[in-house]
Computed example of a mutant assay.
Amino acid sequence: MHHLARFVAVELGGRPGERLCRRLALSGRRTSLIRLLSAPVVPARAPRVLGVDDFAFRRGHTYGTVLVDVEGGKPFDVLPDRRSETLLAWLEAHPGAEVICRDRATGYTRAIKQAAHRGDRSGRPVASAAESVRCGGEDMSPAPRLPAETRSGAGST
């Protein structure tokens, strides 16, 4: 039964989980279901391609930052706010990000530039190059140059 209650807690959380437990005749109060959850351990190294975005814990009141392993397609960590100092501290504590995907939030830009300038403990920059960064879905990298013979024949068929 404990395994089932934990599954309900993971999938539904507090109040919805409590309602389902009541219907299934399981013992599962809101707070006891939440106590069954534990935060996963965050690895010491950041993923190679890190996604950064803000979200609302409570819209209009409290915001946080979600960090995503873009290549793995999974959330990596959650920061308690969206301040640049918090992201900078996280980047310095978790070296390894080579590419950082973000929106146009200036606070994130500032933190990423500072972290890239300082570099990680190995001396490699946190973000490998400015042209690696995608900003708000727009590719900020320079367009690849085609060989001259390909460019000249582009219009003819």
Results as ranks from 00 to 15, higher is better:
T106S: 13
Q114I: 06
V70G: 06
T86E: 06
A115T: 03
V70P: 02
L79E: 07
H94M: 11
S84V: 02
D103C: 10
T106W: 10
A89M: 07
G107M: 09
I112Y: 02
E98W: 02
L67E: 02
K113M: 12
E92M: 11
V68I: 13
P80L: 13
V66W: 08
E92F: 01
E71N: 09
D103R: 03
D81A: 13
V66G: 10
K74D: 12
A111L: 03
G96M: 05
L67N: 01
G73M: 09
V70W: 00
A105I: 07
V99R: 02
T106L: 12
E98T: 07
V70D: 02
R110M: 10
V70K: 00
V66S: 11
L91G: 02
P95Y: 09
A97P: 04
T109P: 00
I100W: 00
V99C: 09
L87D: 06
V68W: 02
V99D: 02
E85L: 10
V66N: 07
P80R: 12
V68M: 09
P80E: 13
G96S: 08
L67I: 05
V78C: 13
F76V: 11
E98F: 02
L88M: 10
R83N: 15
E92Y: 02
G107D: 09
R83H: 15
V66R: 01
P95L: 12
P80H: 13
H94T: 09
R82S: 08
V78P: 03
A97Q: 04
R110T: 14
E85A: 15
D81K: 04
V70Y: 01
E71V: 07
A111D: 05
I112L: 04
D103M: 06
S84R: 05
A111N: 04
R110G: 07
Y108N: 11
C101T: 15
A105Y: 12
K74I: 14
K113Y: 10
C101W: 08
D103V: 04
K74L: 15
